[in-house]
Design a protein around this nucleic acid. Sequence first.
RNA 1: GGAGGCGUAGCUCAGCUGGUAGAGCAACGGACUUUUAAUCCGUAGGUCAUGGGUUCGAAUCCCAUCGCCUUCACCA
Length: 489
Amino acid sequence: MSDAVDSNFEQVRTDKLKKIEALGLDPWGQRFDGHQPIGDIRKLPDDKPEGERPKVRAAGRIVQRRGQGKAFFIDIWDWTGKVQVMIGQKQVGDQGWELTQLFDLGDLIGVDGDFGKTRMGEPTIFVSKLTFLGKSLLPHPDKWGGMADIEFRLRHRYLDLVYSPETLDRTLRRIQIVRAIRTHLDKLGYVEVEGPTLHAIAGGAAARPFITHHNTLDIDLYLRIALELHLKRLLVGGIEKVYEIGRVFRNEGISPTHNPEFTMLELYQAYGNYETMMELTEKMVLAAIDAIGGEQKRPHGERTIDFAPPWDRKKYGDLFQQCTGKAIDDRAGVAAAAREIGLNTQNTDHDVLVHKLFEIKVEPYLETLDRPVFVHDYPAGLCPLTKRKAGQPGIAERFELYVLGMEVANAYTELNDPITQEQTFRQQLAGLAEEDSMAKMDADFVRALKHGMPPTGGLGVGIDRLAMLLTNTTTIRDVILFPLLRPEK
RNA sequence: GGAGGCGUAGCUCAGCUGGUAGAGCAACGGACUUUUAAUCCGUAGGUCAUGGGUUCGAAUCCCAUCGCCUUCACCA
């Protein structure tokens, strides 16, 4: 961006600001009570004859202007809609007319007038009184060109919200989705809590944390990578149905489906298991869909997702057999299939090998499905902190919800056995690479478990990804208002 | 982090195998009291991301740097 040119535009507008002051007006505006949402005004009858028209008061941003001699037609925008206002020289007086000459695209104004139609049939506020509410010193994008540059839109999200209707729409729908989830869970008797964001030990997931520092205590702290370990402490404390919707931070790559900070729902129900969570997940997502219009067949990019219940449930092992032709416990067959596609089978755990094959052979198949599918009953080796199925020590009670191949939810029958938990912590630590060595034994958490945690069903949902799927958005950066960007130089 | 692509006026974009930087909107000056693809006449606006190099001559070719996008890897 060229400073010389910017300051030129800015200078012109600053000069106008001074002229507005010279008119005795406040160029930054004052409290302006009682204005009606433009969307509401647009619903008023606009076919009344002059004299019987509804009186209205609106406030908004000037987004388009058409001068016509002694009359101006201006479109003002607020977050509920857009409406044309007509400003006539006779109607607003000398001061109002002089002010009108000083308007720029982007300025904020308030209008009082009555609502009707012009001769051309356009719903219009015929202004009797103008109030100046705020000057814009920098030029806004023009309405016709719009905002096409992705980087420009991300760095000027405030403009994107005004000039890209889909951005505002998507933002509001995401908010409705989250609110519907909260309402649904509250109705079921879950309570929402707020766990700490600064952790002495970043646990609950396999991810690299961000490091920060507390000055007075003089200790390094980590931004949380999961909500899990504190919510489980609350289960020990008797809070039986608990959830948190909150930001977690993972110091990893950025992609259309990954932002370094993102919003997770984690939920735990004492005396439940993963089946409890499957039922809950389906109902909760359907409640969210209801909140934003209710269509269960939803477009997503080139595809259509059909959320009509009941959603399919497929066993991990069955999918594996279907897509690889090998039984999941066929050690020789799995190894052979792995070698066939160039995987190193030396010193690799059988279950780990199975999952690599799953990613390569099964996930592409899951991407082809246009309905959500619960994949359940995972190999126990993949989820050490999950309870085993009764009588099947090789199978863990876990499911993941896949939609178009995207992992949206992950749920477990949680391990509440502190002895196994502690062993697993130790095994993980022993096998960690140098760069992951910030992971530590969470002795305090194990101590909590030793006081007795109920058998529990637990669920995690990536809220951003769910919002993507429900709002037909293909990049996570468009469901997050301020995704991480490198700072401008 | 690897590989590819992109970066021209405030915004949206042209600019061919190297030959004096363009348009529309926005802006500025003037005209017009009912306009709605966006009235008419005129004016101004650019270190072509940044820094090097090749060349008589670079927005255009080469190298490096910065930023964004796509993709792979890691994850949710």
